[in-house]
Nucleic acid binder design. Structure first.
Lengths: 210, 210, 210, 210
DNA sequence: GATGAATGAGAATTCATTCAT
DNA sequence: TATGAATGAATTCTCATTCAT
């Protein structure tokens, strides 16, 4: 095959992105190195030139994903002009403007057939994102819209429940069942955070269109 | 090797139990059939005499575990003399008398390095146990101790959060961190179910001993 | 399972018959000992009590089949009252009276999915049946209806061609194609044996019904 | 083991050739992939790098063999300068100059211990070669040397008879027996095609030496 | 930097055969 | 005679990794 030379960072990123996508599609274990390189159109050796093993690229994928999400969340949390509720909406609302790819906190990671990705990414996300959200919750407590004693742990619990329960494939829920669970999730969040009923209704927008 | 003949049920149980243990120790994928039979000391053929494939024994393991848990929970839920709170305590309380093995709803499934076992067992447990708990919640609503609109979905959310967050290995929490999370879990449950504060304190007993 | 004791010859015959049927259905290689004993409802040990190995029962099956066919053919060949053509018709004609099972020289062995059975039985049949047919051919030469120099070899060639070409599955012919080949077979036999055209038309009866 | 890199076509051909030989020697079923790779001295992975399964290489072997034979036969049949008898001699005559390997229509496929190879190759050969030979027969009919009504079916019958009967190992004939059968084959072919006696004598050359 | 042929340690599964009961 | 649990060698196939070019 034609030998196409690329800048190292570009090639590396290409491999990580492709692996990311395939891992999410089929799961880490079911993705062979063969699949990844065939998809890109490079040789086996090229893969191993950039990554010393398969676990190695899993780590790279997780790092990439995590970095994006955490950075985005932190920037929202740090925004000085926004109220706690506005920040919550920005992070948890369904109306994510301009996110073409995978920068959606709410929607991320909700994919079936995952194992190592879930373990590493999903959990790490909860762990890394929770402090940021907790920080917002504390701001909300100060603003009088929330009432919680242990923001971090509470957020972690809520995050975990939401993450795993409404995870696309894990429980095999139908669309209707998923919607019911998302509604309840909203209610529980409000109660757990001591927020006003329906204050988190942005999580379940009344959609006009399909 | 010496041929040791056993009663079929005994041999079958032996294989299931061993597989169960090894799956939990190393994870389903990393456990080869070879490992299982070597552990027991039987031939490969013996394994395949009892189970037609590797997925087949996974199912057997899950069934066994699930059966025990669900049966126990249902018997508690059906107890006519108990109040809803008493039933909750019986199922979620830490003081499980005489459970040497895996009959503990609260403690089970919290093990690291699992994939298929967690996916199948953990999730199935949530799905099968939730209706039973929801039934108790409804009794509690009738008794005036709970106040929820959607018991089933609420229970599912709470169950999922508790299950996955405090799952022994998944998040890598320390004992202290786990304790903090279990306390918050209690609070959230109380709020979500509309129960009195500290009414679920049996979930976090002040232990004297280890 | 209930232990059913039978007379040794009966049990043996039962196993041979079942093996025979299954070998023809699925082929020798694809028939496991397991299949045979399950079909009969006896234990593995019973099988190995009567036959010392799998090849052993193949031999038994072939012997049985061959014996039946050869015996029948010989009795026809030895019939003093019949002409050569009448004997030919009796053996090769499609109108086999009273043969419910596998005593049909023309139709036997024409089954797909066979290997060892074809090799052993099919070929042995050609070898053992040919002398008998050759004997009839010689009678026919004496009667002036045939004209051949080497009856045995000629018969073997014709038998082989007929056997393998019109073998139900081997060539994957359609019904129409098979019919065309059987017609040609008849013509070639007549020419090779120096018989009158259409004297072997009994091989291709004009059937009214299906 | 030492890693010896070869051109893909070369390696592929090496595997096909080796498999071909071993399949003919021991039969497809009795040849394990292990045997093939040990014979060549490559790793298992190498085999599966070139062929995705065991049936896959059987197909490759059959294709190779078939391709050679059919191509050769077609080129003879298409030769404009040759008479039908000359073409027949070229294809069926024993005097094949310069065929060291398996390019001999008459000699091929006559090997013991085969199953799948015979079924696939032998039969396919009859099927693919018959139209070509039939074409020659028709030419001969036009030239007045043959007299047949159904060339294709007749050829198929004759081909099948010749193929299977004189198949080296199948019937276990001695050399003398084989010779007798080949002589008769010649006679039957002449009669069936309506050719002059001894016109196919090239099939049984009077050999001085072995 | 890049290629892709080659490696080989397993993995799951089958099945003829044995043997304690 | 009969049972059926137990055996284990053999087989096909996978895939992460290596290395000559």
């Amino acid at each position: 095959m034609a030998r196409i030379v690329k800048a190292p960072e570009e090639r590396r990123a290409e491999i990580v992105d492709t692996a990311d996508r395939l891992f999410r599609q089929h799961g880490y274990a079911k993705c062979s190195v063969e699949m990844i390189i065939r998809e890109i159109g490079v040789a086996k050796g090229t893969f191993y030139y950039y990554f010393k093993s398969k676990p190695d690229i899993l780590e790279a994928v997780v790092d990439k994903t995590l970095g994006q999400v955490v950075e985005m969340a932190q920037s929202v949390a740090d925004a000085p002009a926004l109220s706690a509720m506005q920040k919550m909406e920005a992070l948890l609302g369904g109306s994510h403007i301009g996110n073409d790819d995978s920068l959606d906190v709410a929607e991320m990671l909700h994919l079936p057939e995952n194992r190592e990705l879930h373990e590493l990414t999903n959990i790490q996300t909860v762990l890394q994102l929770s402090p940021i959200l907790a920080q917002i919750v504390e701001q909300g407590v100060g603003e009088g819209v929330f009432d919680v004693e242990k923001p971090l742990e509470t957020i972690q619990f809520l995050f975990t429940g939401a993450q795993f329960l409404t995870d696309g494939g894990m429980f095999g829920f139908s669309d209707a069942e998923l919607r019911a669970r998302r509604l309840v999730t909203q209610t529980i969040i409000e109660k757990a955070l001591g927020a006003k009923p329906e204050s988190f209704s942005f999580m379940n927008p009344v959609r006009a269109v399909k």
